[in-house]
Structure formats: structure tokens, C-alpha cells
Design a protein around this nucleic acid. Sequence first.
DNA 1: ACCTCTAGCAACAAGAAAAGTTACGAGATA
DNA 2: TATCTCGTAACTTTTCTTGTTGCTAGAGGT
Lengths: 159, 159
Amino acid sequence: MSMAANSKRKFEAMRNDSRLSRMLHVLIHMDRHKGAATSDMIANMLNTNPVVVRRTMAGLRDQGYVRSEKGRGGGWTLARKLEDISLLDIHQALGAPPIFAIGLTEDHPECLVEQAVNSALTDAFKEAEAVLVARFAGVTLADLARDFDQRFEQISKCR
Amino acid sequence: MSMAANSKRKFEAMRNDSRLSRMLHVLIHMDRHKGAATSDMIANMLNTNPVVVRRTMAGLRDQGYVRSEKGRGGGWTLARKLEDISLLDIHQALGAPPIFAIGLTEDHPECLVEQAVNSALTDAFKEAEAVLVARFAGVTLADLARDFDQRFEQISKCR
DNA sequence: ACCTCTAGCAACAAGAAAAGTTACGAGATA
DNA sequence: TATCTCGTAACTTTTCTTGTTGCTAGAGGT
Ligand code: FES
Ligand code: FES
């Protein structure tokens, strides 16, 4: 792209890793969109810039969820059906970033108090993580697309 | 304290919020320690510095879990029994910082795809958070102290 | 051939968040 | 009064993430 079409919003904090949410959004869009989506288009949609998009999508490409093609008419396309992609798949394709913002300490590995504390916390986190992973594994992008369709119908009806 | 006794470790990344883990450690220590613990002592133990300790402990004090006293012989003391403090209490006293490192997007609040995505994610997060909170609520600091005692016995025996 | 469009990549800049640090004030105790 | 201790505000440092720039290479169209 020669003309600037990027970066409406100049930064704006980002305490969270919202890549998962963003990528899901993009993937569903891609499914309903004939032809390839360029990094510029996607960047525009996400209010970010094309290089960041490529960086993020690279993970999905490496795991075989999307394909990228260079040159005129190139861009990003889905490599699988939405039915065959779960939320967990995408989470992992993004490098399985840390789920929890709360961490343990390793200041005194010998300290029995620290051990007791860490043990209790890790137990709790593991349990919560298991629940989250199970949920993620059980939802496919097709499910999300269906949810979208329902919302769409709902709105059409109300009008 | 006139002499420097702080800061062995000069920073060292801290991707996580480890205040919960640290405070639990400190509180249990305080229980087994006669007399007040000064911010300097605690800072030393946590490899941080006294101002940070005060900042963090302030939350616990405001919620009535610890007391602080100025002047010679002052410092921090427990205001409750360990039995009456749960992990959840401390988490909340620390301001209930965000549990998850993964977030949603608000780029297109009108967009039905984004709504569907966010809906699925928030459901999953809520479920996981409920599990975590339940766990935190069910564990008291006295439980941790007991765990500590067991570990201690275990080691004594092995020797 | 040449031009344009596209991703890939590396290197650098910028912004924000959290922790660390410094400095000073206010009680408390000896 | 001297000293110890927390309370607090202001400033600095460190680290992380994202944004930005510049270049290469491949794919088509003209
Ligand atoms: S550092 Fe002393 S028991 Fe934790
Ligand atoms: S921005 Fe177009 S549907 Fe999400």
C-alpha cells in the first residue's frame, strides 16, 4: 500500500493481550469474504498496522490455519474450515501466551512457607486453567459464526 | 534504617503480578514472629524496598488485616487470626487485580462478529474465574501455615 | 522488461505500566 | 531532643509491547 490508511488510534494502553480476540474476529471475517485479505485491510480493521498483523498471523500460518500469498492479488486466506478450528487451536497457535496475570514467586525456593503458598496457588490456577482450556477446546469458530448469524437474524427481526 | 539493606536484586522482569504470593508469604511469617515487622525487614525479605512494601501493605491495612504503627518499635502486625483470612480476602485487599492476562476487544462494539467472539470468551473466563475464586475463598492462611508445618515435619523426619 | 502489489523480515522508535528511588513530613518512644 | 518508623508524593528506571521504517523477494499484470 502506498497511501497511508493505518493507525487511526495512536496506541492506547494495552494491559491485556487481545490477540486471541482479534484473531478470532479476523478469521471469521475471512470465512465470509471471498478472496484474500491483505495485511493492510486487516490492519485497518483492527486499527493497527500491517507489520503487526503479519507478525501475529505468522503463528497461525505456521500451524496451518491460514495461508499467505505474495504478489498482486495475494494476502491471507483460510486453510481450514471453521468447523475444524477451536478457540484452543488459535490460542496455542498464538504461542499459548500466559493465561493468568497473577504469578508466583521464586525468591526463596528453599523457604517452606513460600513452597506452601506456591503450592496452594498453583493448585488453584491449574484447576481454573483446566476449566478454561476445556471450554476453549469445545468451541469452534463455526460455533461463533453460528452465533453471529443468530445475532444477525435477531436484529433483522426487530426492525 | 540509616544503612542500605535493600535491593539485592535490581529488578528482573516481572511479567506477573506476584503481590499475592508475596503478601501471603509475609503474613504467615508475621504470624510466627513476635513483635512488629518493619517495612525494612519485609522489604529485605522480599528483595524489594520499603516504600513498595508500604504501598502494598496499605491495602491490607485498609481492609483490617494488618495494623501499622509509627515510631520506635513500630511496624506491621497482624490484626486477625490466620484462620479468619482467606486467599480471596488478600486478593481483594490488593485491589482485586485482573486475573487474566488475555483480554477482549472493543474496537467495533457494533460488530456482531466481535460480539459473538467476546461473548464466547467472556463465558469461558467467567467460568474459570468462578473456579479460581471458589478455590481462593476456600483456603485460609491457617491452612497454608498447616501445610508449612507438615513440610517442616517431613524434612525433620528425613534427616 | 517493467511496474505494482503483496508478504517476510530485521532493526529501531515510542508509549505505557510497574517497580524502584528519593525526599520530606508526621507520630511515637526513649 | 534524637531516633525510629510509617505516609506520601514526585521522580527515575526498567521492561514489555506495539508501532514504524526500510529493505528483500515473489507474483502478476501491462
Ligand atoms: S523467607 Fe523465611 S520462611 Fe519464607
Ligand atoms: S468489523 Fe466487520 S464484522 Fe467485525
